[in-house]
């Protein structure tokens, strides 16, 4: 039995009938084709599937699509505006805050959320704020640098 949902994804209104058990991450990837959102651990730990739901970072592998009914979702595809990267995307580029890149979309969306509540975070606040996002390549050093660069750029 399908349940009708309506939500905004990267500024576009989407109406769809979905199976109640469909996870938000599968809705984004398989129904809408937005494959920038990754599936990593699939057990609510690694944060690769992080998207913004009404401005807050959430793990889309642990949200049902029906729970997202009426909400506004931002995925990595929706961050750049008018062909210009978001300052957090620029900063990850600048500081080389990645290696394989698999965790990067979720990492970047978590940073966008973190900088919303902590516009100039300390290093400890950055590391704690990103505890829900795992990177198995870089060791986090350049990721922390990227957040610092982004915070500075956005504070100007």
């Amino acid at each position: 039995m399908g349940v009708p949902i309506q939500l905004e994804v990267n500024g576009q209104t989407v109406r769809q009938e979905v199976e109640p058990r469909l996870l938000l991450v599968h809705f984004l990837r398989d129904v809408l084709g937005l494959t920038g959102t990754k599936i990593g651990c699939d057990t609510s730990q690694c944060g690769a599937c992080t998207v913004l739901m009404d401005g807050h970072a959430v793990k889309s592998c642990t949200v049902l699509a029906v729970q997202a009914d009426g909400s506004s979702i931002t995925t990595i595809e929706g961050l750049a505006q008018d062909g210009k990267y978001h300052p957090v995307q620029e900063a990850f580029w600048e500081a080389h805050g990645l290696q394989c890149g698999y965790c990067t979309p979720g990492m970047i969306l978590s940073v966008v959320d973190l900088l919303e509540s902590h516009p100039s975070p300390s290093e400890a606040e950055i590391r704690e704020g990103l505890e829900g996002n795992l990177c198995r390549c870089t060791g986090y050093h350049n990721i922390v640098r990227a957040v610092q660069i982004a915070a500075e750029a956005m504070g100007k």
Binding site: G47, T50, A57, K59, S110, D113, L130, E131
Partner: peptide, 9 residues
């Protein structure tokens, strides 16, 4: 509890 994303939900 958990992490930032978990605490939002």
């Amino acid at each position: 509890i958990g992490d930032r994303q978990v605490r939002y939900r």
